[in-house]
């Protein structure tokens, strides 16, 4: 029961309370770009959740070995990065050879697998000393956080486009940046961070 509660609490924390995109900046580029291609957000988020969960579990399992656990943070980063890269290569090669998946789909998978959010999950788990339940929760929570961020950004872009009083200089990317900044400020206040003295 505690295993399940740990898993749920970490997932909710990563998705809503301290949203990894708005509070940590992880995957901010991908979320803004994906909000412009809204139709692919669900499969993209599933890929992110899948890869981050798989990498988090494997890296947590490697951390059980004393020899690896005693290494420095730089060595851990190298090992975790290698696990992520080769797991993507193996999965992509399997899909290409067995199921003849299209190259375009594989390139989208590459973007989903090798981005800052997926690579940050095992590093955060290592630094925080998370267990298996927390690792899986963080992985799934990252996918939910990504979907949530893209939804909010997409709704904001639609509303911004309808506004006609925006100055020319702020039209487009600058308006999106400021809109995302305001949402991030809201999430930072929700998590209890000090914004102003």
């Amino acid at each position: 029961m505690s295993w399940f509660l740990n898993f749920v609490s970490v997932a909710l924390y990563a998705a809503f309370i301290q949203n990894l995109v708005f509070n940590g900046g992880y995957g901010a580029s991908e979320s803004i770009r994906m909000s412009l291609k809204y139709g692919r957000v669900i499969p993209f988020s599933l890929m992110i959740a899948g890869y981050s969960t798989f990498t988090a579990v494997v890296c947590r399992a490697l951390d059980l070995y004393h020899g690896i656990n005693a290494l420095s943070f730089a060595s851990h980063a190298a090992i975790f990065g290698g696990v992520l890269a080769f797991s993507f290569l193996i999965i992509a090669a399997f899909l290409r050879l067995v199921f003849h998946v299209k190259k375009k789909t594989l390139s989208t998978m590459g973007v989903a697998a090798l981005n800052s959010m997926v690579f940050a999950i095992p590093l955060i788990n290592h630094r925080s000393g998370a267990g298996f339940a927390e690792s899986i929760g963080m992985g799934i929570g990252s996918g939910v956080a990504f979907v949530f961020a893209v939804l909010l950004i997409y709704v904001g872009i639609e509303k911004i486009q309808k506004i006609k009083n925006i100055p020319k200089a702020f039209n487009g990317i600058p308006a999106i940046f400021i809109y995302v900044a305001l949402i991030s400020m809201a999430f930072s206040g929700l998590s209890g961070s000090i914004l102003f003295v």
């Binding site: 708005f22 509070n23 940590g24 900046g25 901010a28 100055p167 020319k168 200089a169 702020f170 039209n171 487009g172 990317i173 600058p174 308006a175 940046f177 400021i178 995302v180 900044a181 305001l182 991030s184 400020m185 930072s188 961070s193 000090i194 914004l195 102003f196 003295v197």
Partner: peptide, 24 residues
């Protein structure tokens, strides 16, 4: 000083204004 500027939203605010200046 404003500690909130060290959070991600501070970076986004700065980027927003810089992007507007560059575009103009």
């Amino acid at each position: 000083k404003m500690p909130g500027m060290l959070l991600p939203f501070g970076g986004l605010i700065v980027l927003g204004f810089m992007s507007a200046a560059v575009r103009s």
